[in-house]
Structure formats: C-alpha cells, structure tokens
C-alpha cells in the first residue's frame, strides 16, 4: 500500500511537470468532439465479444489507448486514471466504464490480461481491457496517431483519454497526464452533464478566479477570487483602523 502510495505520489508530481513542460496544443484536444467513435468489434479479456457502441450503451466510456510493451507513458496513464477515479469519491455515483484498448496489433487478449493483472485491475468490474482487429480505423476516428520506431521497438504516442457517451459520441478528449479535476470533468461530460464552459489547457492559472471541482461538478473559487474580495475586505479594515487611530489620538 505504501509502495503504491509512493508511486502515485511520484506520478502526481510528474503529472505537474508534464503539464508544465509539454502542454499539448489546445486545439488538438478539441478535435472529434461530438463525432461518432468508430464502432470497432472488441475482444474483452473476460471473453466477451461486443462492439464499441454496444459497450458504450451499457455505460458511457473512458477509452485509454495503450500497448502492453510500452516503456513510456502507458503505465502512468493507467495508474493515474485509477487513482483519480478512486480518490474523487463523488464521481462514483456517475456511471462509467474504462476501456483500456491496445493499439498495437501484436498484442493478444492474453497480453492485455497480463497488463490488467499488473495494475491489479483484472477483477474491477468497470475496467475493460480489450483488443480489436480494426485498430487503425478506431484510432483514426479519434485522431490518435502513434508512430512506430524500429530502433527502440516502441511507439511514440500521446497519453490520450477519450470520453464516449452512451450514444457513441465523443464528448471530450484529454491529452497528456491530467489531474483528477480534469478526469472529473471527463466523467461528467460522458454522462451528458452540460458544463457551459471550461478552461483551455496551457494557460497559467495561478491567479484564475475559479477551479473546476469534480466533486460537486461546479466551479469553486480559486486564488483569483481572493483578489476580487480583497478590495472590500481591505476597505472595511481601513475603516476600522482609521477609527481606532483617530480615537486613540483624541483620547
């Protein structure tokens, strides 16, 4: 448990670094919104054969794209997603399944089963590990473009989560390792909870007025809000100080 906590802490720290260093282009993340995800036939490690749309119809989906031989971002992506979903309890009452799908044609169902075991997720009911035989059409339907490097035998690829609602529409995409706030936003969006606004990634939000709170699904005051309250607070303090000073002078 301790070890687990440490790992997740490191990932948490890394995720901030990743966020800070390699912010993805804001526009990229906005592609494919409200388009239908390709209805790929899936082979799930439980032995089921379903199509993407059938699976989504059961429960809206968070789709994570990985490959089992990945030595890069795949593991942090899964672990952080698991953490975010566990430790943000109030999104628990929102329905979702996580579909972890391999985009490497070499991966078999067995490979995915091993991967699930590695993350201790093989018995989690709402985590589905799967492979598909039409991966290229699936990834092109969400604009995901891994590049194969022969020298390293690795794919160069982004960490991508795609939210799919029960009608099979892409509602939101998250690029890069993201914190639980963003995961919460993703879960809300696949449940068709309308949020009239959101911040784009890549902006400094040190002094932003509001932060999105996935627990309540609402925006909560950020540091910037303090700046808005500050003038009123200061004015009243000054009023009291002036009175105290002038009273002590006259006394």
């Amino acid at each position: 448990m301790h070890k687990y906590g440490l790992t997740s802490f490191l990932i948490f720290v890394c995720s901030f670094l990743v966020d800070a260093v390699a912010q993805p282009a804001a526009g990229w993340q906005e592609t494919n919104i409200n388009e239908v995800i390709y209805n790929a036939p899936l082979q799930i490690i439980s032995g089921d054969h379903v199509s993407m749309h059938q699976l989504a119809a059961q429960n809206p989906l968070v789709v994570a794209f990985v490959f089992t031989r990945c030595s890069g971002i795949c593991a942090p992506l899964i672990i952080q997603l698991k953490e975010s979903l566990q430790f943000a309890p109030n999104i628990g009452n929102k329905k979702y399944n996580v579909l972890v799908i391999s985009f490497d044609p070499r991966d078999s169902v067995k490979d995915m089963e091993n991967m699930a075991t590695r993350f201790n997720l093989q018995h989690e009911g709402n985590w589905k590990f799967a492979v598909t035989d039409s991966i290229s059409r699936l990834i092109s339907s969400v604009n995901f473009n891994p590049v194969w490097y022969e020298q390293t035998l690795q794919f160069d690829h982004d960490a991508l989560l795609v939210g799919v609602n029960s009608q099979g529409f892409v509602t939101k995409k998250l690029l890069g390792l993201r914190n639980s706030k963003d995961i919460g936003l993703l879960i809300n969006s696949i449940n068709n909870v309308f949020s009239p606004t959101y911040r784009l990634p890549g902006q400094s939000n040190l002094f932003s007025c509001y932060n999105y709170n996935p627990k309540t699904g609402k925006n909560t005051p950020g540091l910037g809000m303090l700046f808005i309250a500050l003038p009123a607070i200061l004015s009243f303090s000054i009023l009291i100080i002036i009175r105290l000073v002038s009273k002590s002078k006259s006394a």
Binding site: A25, G27, W28, E30, T31, N32, I33, N34, N165, Q167
Partner: peptide
C-alpha cells in the same frame, strides 16, 4: 444533445468557424 457542433475562434478581426476543432 446538440445535433450540430460549431467551433468558433475569434481573433482581431475575424471569426473562424468550423465543424471540426480549430488549431489556434
């Protein structure tokens, strides 16, 4: 649920509208 989504990017002094996401 919307039947159609239009992305709009406003800039000095134009509007770019697209059915697809707009690269800033």
């Amino acid at each position: 649920q919307p039947a159609k989504v239009v992305h709009v990017a406003a800039g000095q002094f134009f509007f770019t509208m697209s059915y697809k996401a707009i690269n800033p």
